[in-house]
């Protein structure tokens, strides 16, 4: 990408001042550490800029900054940085790995922090433990069917609108930005999305009520907060999932609580 396109005409490099959360391990109280004048290219991704800083730190014999990343294509949900108080940074519908330094002014001051939630304990620096999400999925984010052979295409008719809604919800990459952004550290958008993408498909409807109950109960036991309808989750979600999925979860949980009889084998998976 040319310098002209980058919005930094005539500058092939830019400098930013970073304040990064450093924490040795889960027990360390942690603190913000300043890194002034970090040089980078406007065309670097945010994580590449951190890679450059880490190389410099290692050259000086210092501990590099630990942060999560995997695909760096915005599809895996591993990266999890809060930039200036906004999970994944200032660009709408963008994971922090897809955020480029040209999104910031030359000389910008950036505060980089991990996701903050009781249910996401910090393991080290900017890395948090998100296995609470895995346990919520284990509680009910599945369909208990014998997979068997590959079914014929269109053997089970699914209306286009329903398929679209399921796909929109299934775009959730489970990064946890919704929890990080919510003033209550609630996981409603994540759980709502996981419930929604199954409830809109015929295969997911048999267990709709059991699923809502099991997943919400697990979410509560993990120590996530409650929904106050701040809508901050929807605003930061890199996949732009709508809070409509939370309404669907609310509906399913209410109907499950009022009408569903407890089963002895609750919590069991496929037979």
């Amino acid at each position: 990408m040319s310098a002209q396109q980058s919005g930094h005409q005539g500058h092939s490099t830019m400098k930013v001042t970073l304040h990064v959360w450093r924490q040795k391990d889960a027990r360390d109280p942690g603190r913000m550490v300043g890194y002034p004048n970090v040089e980078c290219s406007p065309d670097m991704s945010f994580l590449e800029m951190l890679d450059v800083l880490n190389e410099r730190l290692m050259e000086k014999g210092e501990e590099p900054i630990a942060f999560d990343s995997d695909c760096r294509e915005g599809i895996c949900g591993a990266c999890s940085l809060t930039v200036n108080g906004i999970p994944h940074g200032p660009r709408k519908g963008t994971t922090v790995c897809q955020l480029h330094m040209r999104s910031f002014e030359d000389g910008a001051e950036l505060f980089i922090e991990p996701w903050r939630a009781k249910a996401f304990p910090v393991l080290r620096d900017l890395v948090v433990d998100r296995s609470a999400f895995d346990r919520i999925i284990e509680a009910g984010g599945f369909v208990s069917v014998r997979a068997g052979g590959c079914p014929d295409g269109n053997a089970i008719p699914v209306p286009k609108e329903e398929a679209d809604q399921a796909m929109d919800a299934a775009a959730c990459i489970g990064c946890g930005a919704c929890v990080a952004a919510c003033p209550n550290a609630a996981a409603m958008l994540f759980v709502g999305a996981k419930i929604s993408h199954l409830r809109h498909l015929p295969q997911g409807q048999a267990e709709q009520k059991r699923r809502a109950q099991a997943m919400v109960d697990q979410m509560d036991s993990e120590g996530f907060g409650n929904c106050s309808n701040y809508l901050e989750c929807e605003a930061v979600c890199p996949k732009e999932i709508s809070v409509k999925v939370i309404a669907e979860m609310n509906r399913d949980y209410l109907s499950a609580s009022l009408t569903r009889e407890e089963q002895k084998n609750d919590g069991g998976g496929a037979g």
């Binding site: 959360w21 809060t82 108080g85 505060f111 903050r116 952004a181 209550n184 701040y230 809508l231």
Partner: peptide
Amino acid sequence: AARPVAYVKQASRQV
């Protein structure tokens, strides 16, 4: 209780 450690830099998009 769900957020025992607050963000150093506080910001919001649409609260």
